[in-house]
């Protein structure tokens, strides 16, 4: 019975919303779905505690928060933190770096998994494809500490590549610790680490494309490129838009660990992003209130972005993340 309903939903993804069942039936449905509801519980608890519960932490943004005094006894300061934020050059430098890196990520990291997924999808041999797939997933499971150490050992001033160049008598390359190379470097790192993993959703979408469409297109003499353009991409467009909108919502959340570990090598001007700024002001300097204000600012921008992106998606006739 349960499986039937799931199948129904999948076969009519854009179907009309089914009419609410009669009141008497509601209890019965709850009973019938109790296993599913139980399975839902841990996830629900997670969101309640770590996402909704944590939202109350935003009051810190309006306090001179002292950890061992707590929210109750810390002094209220109104909008002082926000006033300070808008005139703080360090904050704006962090915003600039974050936006620049986010734009680079969007331009280079967002399309990369799609391209890789298309490539993987076109590999004929099933065994070979599975093997390549497993290999490109692997870096995702390495921690940032290891990935960064790897990049540093390869590209660093005393690293492998500079060692070779020195042996050849050619001048060295300066990438690690070079503020100008920093932003491309961090984007390259994230592509290397996460590209394979990010193909999963695209591959799932690609597997849903009707094979008959390809056959029909091929019969009509469509080349690989034409099939890609007219069959594949339109078929997976909703997924691409969905992921893009989701990505925009997290536009300013470009990651913490990666930047925290490398900030020192290029200094704050080039290396400070919003998340490290929050860490240094909040946790390292104990300025929790100010850090919370910056975090709140980031959250508000995130909501604005996702709302706008979703509106735009609707305008283009796409489903987006949610229906308004």
């Amino acid at each position: 019975m349960v499986t039937t309903r799931v199948r129904e939903t999948r076969s009519t993804p854009r179907g009309p919303v089914t009419a609410p069942p009669a009141r008497a039936g509601r209890w019965q449905r709850l009973r019938a779905d109790r296993i599913l509801l139980l399975l839902l519980l841990p996830g629900l608890l997670y969101f309640l505690v770590f996402h909704y519960g944590a939202l109350f932490g935003n009051v810190l943004a309006f306090q001179d928060y002292v950890p061992f005094l707590g929210v109750r006894d810390s002094e209220w300061v109104g909008l002082a933190h926000f006033e300070r934020m808008f005139t703080d050059p360090l904050f704006w430098s962090a915003v600039t770096n974050t936006v620049l890196i986010a734009v680079l990520q969007l331009a280079f990291f967002f399309p990369a998994p799609l391209a890789l997924a298309l490539l993987l999808h076109s590999i004929a041999g099933d065994t070979l494809r599975k093997f390549v797939q497993s290999v490109v997933y692997l870096p995702h499971f390495l921690s940032w500490v290891i990935v960064i150490a790897l990049f540093q050992h390869m590209l660093g001033g005393a690293g492998v590549i500079n060692g070779w160049l020195a042996d050849l008598g050619v001048g060295g390359i300066s990438i690690i610790g070079n503020p100008d190379a920093y932003k491309p470097l961090v984007v390259a790192q994230v592509i290397w680490k996460e590209c394979g993993w990010a193909t999963i959703i695209f591959l799932a979408a690609l597997s849903q494309v009707d094979e008959q469409m390809y056959e029909a297109a091929a019969l009509d003499g469509a080349s690989w490129w034409r099939r890609l353009w007219h069959v594949t991409l339109p078929a997976i467009r909703p997924v691409i838009i969905l992921l893009l909108v989701l990505r925009l919502g997290e536009f300013l959340s470009i990651g913490f660990e990666q930047f925290f570990l490398q900030r020192q090598s290029v200094g704050a001007e080039a290396g400070e992003v919003l998340d490290t700024f929050v860490y240094y002001t909040g946790f390292a300097s104990g300025d929790f209130g100010y850090a919370a204000a910056v975090g709140l600012f980031k959250g508000v921008i995130g909501i604005a972005l996702i709302y706008t992106a979703n509106k735009v998606a609707h305008r283009f006739g796409e489903q987006g993340v949610y229906k308004s």
């Binding site: 969101f47 770590f50 996402h51 909704y52 519960g53 944590a54 939202l55 109350f56 932490g57 935003n58 009051v59 810190l60 943004a61 928060y65 950890p67 061992f68 005094l69 707590g70 929210v71 109750r72 989701l246 919502g249 997290e250 959340s253 913490f256 998340d275 929050v278 909040g282 929790f288 850090a291 919370a292 910056v294 975090g295 709140l296 980031k298 959250g299 508000v300 995130g302 909501i303 996702i306 993340v321 949610y322 229906k323």
Partner: peptide
Amino acid sequence: KRRSLLQLTGAGALGIAAGPGLAA
């Protein structure tokens, strides 16, 4: 769909959560 949105707004605030409930 709705949950995804809420998850995102929640994630925005996560970066600043310092567990005030614990600190009272």
